[in-house]
């Protein structure tokens, strides 16, 4: 049981750890690449969106790679 709990919590920790790093990148540059319309908005909007980026980073990274390829 303890090993299962340990692995779940480690995965959760890694997920949110990477999420946090991605969140910083998202705030500084990523948001603009994902959706250029965000350029017309204030920086507070990007700040408000950071928790969402922390939560959904795998999806956003795959989206970024797809737009790069195009």
């Amino acid at each position: 049981m303890i090993t299962v709990i340990n692995s779940i919590l480690t995965i959760l920790g890694i997920y949110f750890g990477i999420g946090l790093l991605f969140g910083i990148y998202f705030f500084l540059a990523g948001a603009r690449k994902i959706d250029p319309i965000i350029n017309d908005s204030k920086w507070t909007v990007r700040l408000l969106l950071v928790p969402g980026a922390v939560a959904t980073w795998p999806f956003l990274i795959s989206k970024l790679f797809k737009t790069e390829k195009q």
């Binding site: 994902i34 959706d35 909007v45 408000l48 969106l49 922390v54 939560a55 959904t56 989206k63």
Partner: peptide, 10 residues
Amino acid sequence: ATSHDFWLKN
């Protein structure tokens, strides 16, 4: 965290 039109679209 995703309750924003930005997330709905993207």
